[in-house]
């Protein structure tokens, strides 16, 4: 189980970094979106192997539940990430409007 998570994290980080290093603002946006996912899964993985555990809706004490804290932290992180991504999208739009291009080289040599 953890092996799969680890692999997902690795792939997501690699693809996101590759996209962020592109020369166009749209792939960069996609890259940051993937980077968010990558960090989120990393944080979630910290709660350990969920196999054989229950979701943290506690009806009976003494049973084995997954750790609720990483989930709660992640909830906050996802929402914050959403706010920032929304801002990033609009910023990229403004940059596109100001330079009429989505190419990083064009934008910075404008």
């Amino acid at each position: 189980m953890t092996t799969i998570t680890i692999l997902i994290v690795g792939v997501l980080f690699s693809t996101s970094v590759y996209l962020i290093l592109q020369r166009n603002i749209i792939p960069i946006l996609f890259g940051f979106s993937l980077l968010n996912h990558a960090a989120n899964i990393f944080l979630l993985a910290v709660s350990g192997d969920p196999t054989g555990k229950k979701a943290p809706i506690v009806t009976l004490l003494g049973e084995s539940y997954v750790d609720p804290l990483p989930q709660a932290l992640l909830l906050t992180a996802i929402v914050i990430g959403f706010g920032v991504t929304a801002y990033l999208i609009v910023l990229l739009y403004r940059i596109y409007l100001s330079h009429s291009s989505t190419n990083i080289e064009d934008i910075y040599n404008d």
Binding site: I20, L35, F42, V84
Partner: peptide, 19 residues
């Protein structure tokens, strides 16, 4: 406006690592 992008991008990476 373009100068906001480096700042934002770098800090996004920072935030992901922070998490």
């Amino acid at each position: 406006v373009r100068h906001a992008l480096p700042y934002l991008a770098i800090n996004l990476i920072g935030s992901a690592l922070f998490l």
